[in-house]
Design a protein around this nucleic acid. Structure first.
Lengths: 208, 208, 208, 208
DNA sequence: TATGAATGAGTGTTCATTCAT
DNA sequence: CATGAATGAACACTCATTCAT
């Protein structure tokens, strides 16, 4: 439909340029979080970032290209957060590990419902399959490593499938229980953990 | 923020007025499905519905009010679809029942990723808590009735929790596998069924 | 410019029709008083009057025709108010008479700044010269009668001129001191009386 | 009611920006003068000014803000015109001075009835008390200086009152006689001069 | 006659994008 | 390279007016 490129117009070479791109991405994320898609106008982003609108267009050929960059960063953030969590739980058992991963996801999504659903909608609209595929590949690798530790407890799983299903599962449960009072967050965590453990079929093996 | 009402401006009294409101809602849904939030402009909706823009504003005081009506219809649709499916599977066992419910959800969501995420984002932005609460209550009642049939096979569940968690769970898995080739739809169905059955702890009882 | 007639579409013959026209004029005046020109939409007038928009257009061919009717009523009201006041002050001396007339004008204009300026602006825009000429003629006759009572105290005046100048003079002073606290209304009255008496040259004769 | 700011959105920094703002204000005044409030649409203003509608909104956050700017200019214009006239009549006697001031006001108002009543109506609707107060203060100072020259001829006056009453008085008389044929303009001038001199009580002193 | 659903040109306003400086 | 003034298509929404019922 639109023939305009969605890739950044040029890679920032100088340090100052890197900082500019960083400021733009940060500003866009803030605006998205605070007031949703409608608030992320290119002029507002430039103003919040402290750069001129002209500069923004130096680095991003159009609004969608900026959006794609945000999606890229969000995806990378997901992977890194999981990678970090996995380091922390190398000694833990399966349930504790799952609980820790769920808690990490919750900490990120709670009160960010607007940002999350905004990015979701733009993911559905923009051609970002390649970016998501990359995330899935990296996530799959991480999960494969994790599953190998618990291969005796969980059912027979296809890591490629699980890498796609599990994050969605966690996110949806967290979202569904999102804007709750602090006192009920434990319920959300419990539900998510139960869903994940259930999906992992830990009881099926026991039953066999 | 905005003090404008989000309730319909007036109820259609004459028959042709009912048809007008219906056409508007249909047109809005179509546009959302085809090109996302940005395509659902009030003028485009009126044009697609074959009515004048003035007529749209006779019944909806603003764009958000129309959006709220779409959310209301979507929620009601979810409930009715589940209610219908439950009638069809009164004789089936648990796994078959779950599979049928999942299939119903898939039929609706496949290729509707844009519509779904659009409505999601607007739900996060608009004050529709009351509408969602009503859906949860009705859905909870339906599930409670369903669970009673399988009380010997599933783990101990809080129906109020399950009414919130289960639909989110199905939807997210379906969404995550949404824009796939026909050949892989079976995978999506398999994943969703496994997630639901896992959440329902059917294997835990076997293990006991 | 616009060739549409500004005269009422038809004289109301039945009693019910008279009541309808009356209700419409009342409603329009209320809306003008409350929120100015922008609030006097034909639909709002019909709703406030409790008649359908179709009925409004039965009696007034367009919005300007309604506006002209309001101007006509306002002008007639001015004349009648002066006529009534003159009856009350047949025994009073000049200054007391002027004060009474000023007070009548003030009672009418205070807190009606929006209505007054709205009608003013429409008078400037619409072809209502004939209506205003009629008012001036009637007002001139009244003043001539009044002046004859005080012919020994006031300077040589052309009643035709005075009929145009004096009302404007009173109104402007009242307007200029309009939205004042109750405590300062006396000041406004004093200023208006002084202006009128000054214009009437009562001191010139004394000086002669 | 409306919380939107009525102050200019940003001060023009570059020279061409100053020209843009000036062109917008000029165009708005022209349209008001020619066809009244209804003609002063933002799009018409931009077109007449020869700038894009976007440029108008760079400098004025909304239509009312532009209107406020026009009121500000009108008020400032009144003051400056009086100030200029006062310089010209430093040698003249009281009646000649008044006549000159009245003539200045007439030159401005004649054939501008639409502009004047439009601004009047908007002054009644918009929160411009501060602007008007400033005008009154400056005008009062000018009058005080003028009165001191004629303190022996005029009655005892409160300059603060006179600063409010006198301009209103002149304006209303001029307005009342506004759309007259050239031949009758002398009448209007005569009436206004008589009203002002009368208000100033010049004959009262003679009578004492 | 009275009704009110329907109309659509026209309003105020926004915002992605360009380009002269 | 950076700036920010300028652009104008497109948006949400209004309202005088018509006309089938």
């Amino acid at each position: 439909m639109s023939s305009a490129s969605l890739t950044p117009r040029k890679a920032p070479r100088q340090a100052r340029a890197v900082a500019t791109v960083e400021a733009i991405a940060q500003a866009a994320t803030q605006l998205l979080r605070e007031n949703g898609l409608a608030a992320m106008t290119t002029n507002a982003v430039a103003a919040r970032a402290g750069v001129s609108i002209g500069s923004l267009y130096q680095y991003f050929p159009n609004r969608d290209a900026l959006m794609v960059e945000l999606i890229r960063r969000e995806q990378r953030g997901h992977v890194e957060r999981v990678r970090a969590a996995l380091v922390l739980c190398e000694e833990l058992d399966l349930e504790a590990t799952v609980r820790l991963l769920v808690r990490a996801a919750m900490g990120h999504h709670r009160a960010d419902a607007l940002l999350a659903s905004a990015i979701d909608h733009e993911e559905a609209r923009l051609p970002v399959d390649a970016i998501i595929a990359e995330t899935l590949a990296e996530g799959g690798a991480l999960l494969m490593h994790l599953f190998s530790r618990f291969r005796d407890e969980i059912g027979p799983l296809d890591p490629a499938r699980a890498a796609r299903t599990l994050p969605a599962l966690v996110r949806s449960v967290v979202d569904a229980w999102a804007n709750l009072a602090q006192s009920e967050l434990e319920v959300a965590e419990e539900e998510a953990v139960q869903a994940v453990l259930g999906y992992l079929c830990i009881y099926r093996r026991l039953a066999a």
